[in-house]
Amino acid sequence: MGLTKPNQELRRELKSLGLGLEQAASEVLNLTRGCQGEEVIAALKLITKLYENADRLATLADEVKAGQISRTAELRR
């Protein structure tokens, strides 16, 4: 059975947010090219957190697809 429209929208939103986090992590990585020492360590910690959050959003999107998480029409923005 396919996803309901609210669940399709939720899945798309989660995937979009995850992609945005991955792009932000990539941009932060590019900004660290000229940095050294503690600046790089701080940036790498931030990048790691961004990728962890992106992975979590991807997992939630998969759970929506599997029907484990759903959105009702009343909860949509």
Rank of each mutant, 00 (worst) to 15 (best):
L46P: 00
E39Q: 09
A73I: 13
L31V: 02
E13K: 02
R77E: 13
G37A: 13
C35S: 15
Q23H: 09
L3G: 02
E27G: 03
P6D: 05
N53H: 15
L57P: 00
M1A: 05
S16N: 08
R12C: 14
T72M: 14
T59N: 02
I47T: 06
R33Q: 14
G20R: 05
K65Y: 11
A66P: 07
G20A: 10
T32N: 06
R76V: 13
L21R: 01
I47W: 07
D55W: 11
L50H: 05
Y51L: 10
L75K: 13
A25G: 12
Q23T: 15
A54N: 01
T59Y: 08
G18I: 15
S70D: 15
Q23V: 08
L60Y: 05
T72C: 10
S26E: 14
T59S: 09
E74Q: 08
R76C: 15
C35E: 15
A58N: 11
K5S: 12
L57E: 06
K65N: 11
T4I: 01
E38R: 14
E74Y: 02
T72A: 13
L75F: 02
D62N: 15
L75A: 15
R77Q: 11
G18M: 05
L3C: 07
A58S: 11
G34M: 09
K5D: 15
R11S: 02
P6N: 04
L46Q: 01
R33D: 14
A25S: 13
E74F: 03
A54V: 04
V64H: 00
G37C: 13
N30M: 14
R71Y: 01
E63R: 11
A73Y: 05
A66V: 03
I69Y: 06
L3H: 05
A24F: 07
N7P: 01
L14K: 04
N7C: 10
R12A: 08
T4H: 06
L75Y: 05
G2R: 02
A54F: 02
V40Y: 06
L60V: 03
K15N: 02
Q68C: 11
I41G: 10
R12K: 11
K15G: 00
G37T: 09
K15V: 00
Y51T: 07
I69K: 06
G37W: 15
G20D: 09
L57G: 02
A42I: 14
A73D: 12
Q36T: 14
L17W: 02
Q36F: 13
L31N: 12
T48W: 13
G37K: 13
D62Y: 04
L14H: 04
T59L: 07
M1W: 10
A24S: 08
I47D: 13
E22F: 00
E38P: 05
R12Q: 09
